[in-house]
Design a binder for these strands. Structure first.
Lengths: 207, 207
DNA sequence: ACTATTTTGTCACCAAATGTCACAAAGTCC
DNA sequence: GGACTTTGTGACATTTGGTGACAAAATAGT
């Protein structure tokens, strides 16, 4: 039962609920209904309840779901309760934006190190992390148990960094450049492509 | 027939193919097989062929698809062939990263204006666009026919900008902050949530 | 010219996911 | 106590996606 893998769809939706819950909590709410979650995720309320009730009875009838409790439950279901270390590559505008934004921190990801090759950037503090030289990649990945590499480097450098990450055993790469990356099949690459998502939104607006 | 809306899934996949095609073109390729597209999108090659063959016979047997031709066809199918104006809010690190990256330009989106409220940023050039004061929002939206607003502002300011955009008729908002936005039901909000996508990737890695 | 190989375009079929309606049970509010 | 809200859950239709199969078209090699 609990060792079954979730389906892609359920895991994706649970992650999205988690984001809504995290934000709702920041806004001071303590409980939330499936209806309310639906408004922010565009997932049907019945589906939400069904997704959740498959794992336990987390809600209170007539009230909704306790936000803190549900966040904890979903984290447990997704098995991502702990802290996970990520390494960020590129300390340019994008890298700095990511490092200072807190989006990752909210979900239990700790930016373990920021790398760059530009001597003017190495040694500079971004948020409260000092930018290190790319040469230190190997030791940091090994020492800190980095699980995820986040690429905020120019497209031309992305493949090289990806190769190095793969060589040092990192299996998840989050790619903010628009380069297509070639990696072994056991490595997951997620490419952020805002323009693609915009195209998608635009289509449904135009028709 | 051609006036039928595409289903969500097909539209999403076509957009993704488009990104792969755009990048493959940049890498100097002129044709590509469904197999190759599959490797970058994780969509089954048969499905890709079926998606495309529903609209015409775009490929050459034994060869694959002509990249330029297929890009044009998909743009036509998605009805997003033209130029679309977008307005960017926030000229901080993230805003500058977006403005200078070219991700939007590659897909026919033109950044029509960049807004900020900080007097130190207004008037500064980012890429080849001069940052304007937020007060000019109304006239720019009207004059340039802005269809999309991209929010690269702090979470605390996101709802206010969204409200103003809605008030001036913009129907698509791309939100890079982590704020939950309340908008009328005819407005589409797309929130970028890298951490959520990471959680999702991590789950499948851990199991 | 002939053969082997690649790759599209399509069939048919199955499994899985999603949307929808319905409704009892549990809780809150007045 | 009665009205209302909201969860948990069942049943069912529909859609979607995955898979295997295979002919037809194109290329490359001999």
């Amino acid at each position: 039962m609990s060792s079954d893998r979730l389906t892609l769809g359920v895991a994706a939706r649970l992650s999205r609920y988690l984001q809504v819950l995290t934000q709702a909590k920041k806004m001071g709410k303590t409980s939330i209904s499936s209806q309310a979650i639906s408004e922010y995720t565009n997932v049907n309320p019945t589906q939400i309840r069904r997704d959740l009730s498959g794992f336990g009875k987390f809600g209170k009838r007539g009230v909704g779901y306790d936000i803190d409790g549900l966040i904890a439950q979903i984290r447990k279901i997704l098995r991502t309760s702990g802290q996970h270390n990520i390494a960020l590559f590129g300390a340019g505008n994008l890298g700095q934006a990511i490092a200072t934004s807190g989006v990752f921190a909210d979900h239990g990801f700790r930016i373990s190190a920021i790398f760059d090759v530009d001597p003017d950037r190495v040694g500079v503090k971004v948020g409260d992390i000092t930018v290190r030289h790319y040469d230190e990649l190997e030791s940091v990945v090994a020492d800190d148990g980095v699980m995820v590499g986040v690429l905020a480097v120019p497209s031309s450098a992305a493949q090289e960094v990806a190769d190095d990450l793969v060589a040092h055993g990192v299996k998840i790469i989050f790619n903010y450049s628009d380069a297509l990356l070639s990696v072994p099949s056991d490595v997951t690459v997620h490419t952020s492509s805002p323009a693609v998502e915009l195209l998608h939104a635009l289509y449904f607006y135009l028709t």
